[in-house]
């Protein structure tokens, strides 16, 4: 092990507590914004992707809550909040 793991496998090693809400949402109508495409590059968890229609999609499961996408894309493109208390990633090592 500790050869290169797939991202899903890597994220699977973490503890994630379920949340009722998606804590980050792409603002409506901004899905094709070129600036938003940068999120695909910067997210360490690889949660952003571009679909066949050229729209950016976000899978929220596996979010490390690092804040990078908000810094890259800004509040103009992303409705960004931390998950509810007690939800989301819970680092065991950190």
């Amino acid at each position: 092990m500790s050869e290169v793991l797939g991202l899903k496998e890597k994220l699977g090693r973490n503890v994630f507590k379920h949340s009722e809400h998606r804590h980050i949402n792409i603002k409506e109508g901004r899905e094709k914004d070129p600036q938003l495409k940068k999120a695909v590059l910067v997210c360490p968890a690889g949660l952003y992707s571009v679909n066949d229609n050229g729209e950016v999609e976000l899978t929220i499961d596996g979010c490390l809550e690092c804040g990078t996408c908000r810094l890259a894309c800004g509040p103009e493109l992303l409705e960004w909040n931390y998950p509810d208390g007690g939800a989301g990633v819970q680092f065991r090592f950190g």
Binding site: M1, S2, N14, P44, L64, G67, L71, V89, G94
Partner: peptide, 14 residues
């Protein structure tokens, strides 16, 4: 250096 190690966590922060 990491041969045979086990990845126990993947974390990140700005």
């Amino acid at each position: 250096l990491i041969k045979d190690g086990n990845t126990a966590e993947y974390s990140g922060h700005a």
